[in-house]
Write a protein that binds this DNA or RNA. Sequence first.
DNA 1: TAAGAATTTATTGTCAACAATAATAAAATA
DNA 2: TATTTTATTATTGTTGACAATAAATTCTTA
Lengths: 244, 244
Amino acid sequence: MLNLVFILNIVDNMGVNSLQPNKQDTLSEHVFEQIKEDIITGAIPQGCKIVETDLAKSYHISRGPLREALHKLESIHLVDRRPHSGSRVVTLDIVMMRDVYQMREAMEGFATRLACVAMSQADIDNLYRLLEKHESSIERSEGQRYFQKEGDLDFHYYVFSKCQNQWLIDYLNNKLYQVLRMCRHRTSQIPFRVEPALHDHYAIVDAINNRDPELAEILMRRHISGAWKVVEKLLNQEENKESK
Amino acid sequence: MLNLVFILNIVDNMGVNSLQPNKQDTLSEHVFEQIKEDIITGAIPQGCKIVETDLAKSYHISRGPLREALHKLESIHLVDRRPHSGSRVVTLDIVMMRDVYQMREAMEGFATRLACVAMSQADIDNLYRLLEKHESSIERSEGQRYFQKEGDLDFHYYVFSKCQNQWLIDYLNNKLYQVLRMCRHRTSQIPFRVEPALHDHYAIVDAINNRDPELAEILMRRHISGAWKVVEKLLNQEENKESK
DNA sequence: TAAGAATTTATTGTCAACAATAATAAAATA
DNA sequence: TATTTTATTATTGTTGACAATAAATTCTTA
């Protein structure tokens, strides 16, 4: 399954993963990426205390670069750091996830507005083709959630990457979407229906195609706040189950 | 003049400066704050190449903490960093400033919407009092631009600090507003009229007072995009002058 | 025995030396 | 003379040791 996604991303060269810079020139960068993935996938569990010397040993580097990596992880909200006291991996409570989804609603909505003005017709055609591909892959592989979520990310990424505001792109790509992936790992066991999402996506692209920035923004906002309502519900159910 | 602002901020405990964390427990934090101010005020000029050993010497620390400070400065977009090649102070060209103002429009607009729902009546009363104070201080000290700009920041800060989204507050306060202060230092010699801004502010607070989040957001957005149009004009004039 | 103070241990913050890379200058060739 | 190649220098990346602080433990006393 993972392979299929990988190949697809390479083929059409517009997948999320292929477009991340992933510059690992220095040791610190490399280990940053590694720890980031380990946190997002849960290999290093949430709330886990981080001891610099231990972690440095397990990644086979010295404390200097590790420290730089931790600083970077702090700047994208994946670890908390208190002077003299040490670092912990963040715990994604419901409040934090709400904050993230709200941010996403605001920023991606605005990015969609900007992209609607800036996109070429070729870009829009690409978007339609992307959605058609998602549609057919849903028919073919009903229930294979991982792929569908990646497809969802591909769509969102393609849209906001055309907004021509580097700050916006950077923040969405390097900060919000990392935490979002972490959220998804937490809720990945829970099935959800993708057809409504695809329907939303078509509506958004239609608005872009009609060059209606206000509508495009509103639709993207609703799409995201709708997604949050689903996630919130699931989290609340989970919480209730645990407290019993 | 500076003193007056300072006293005012302490007295009512709602100024921008008093609410920034400013934790300088470690050497690295301390020097981070120092360099940050030096960049924002222009003591270290834009586009300036940064040599770690030199800078470490001039701040009387070793390269370790300096490096951490530089990383932090990079994460708030105040320096650019390329592996093995070194760092430079950013140069605020018109594109970057447009990006920042766009971000601000999106995020502060959304923050205003959230704050409109979350604010207590006491908060709103405080806002009205703050505006009245600004109004009278404009009458008293016409033309003293520094104070007026600080007053403007106080207003904006007070609003978005009530949005109850820690990510949003953090981003606006620690990233966007730092670059914004840098912009203002660049354009500080240029006079501008504050009465229209005050009028906008009243309209925004009225919308909040009527508990109309949509309108509050729209008004805040217009207020900020209007401010950008003024700044953009000034920058273009400046550019034309230089190219002659 | 329980609470508080003093001591020890563990962990982070800082430093200065070393290695690796990129920018610069010098030399060689066309 | 212009251009490529080579050597030099300057600057960053990395490391391990040391100092300062916080957490844990032991000891004392009520």
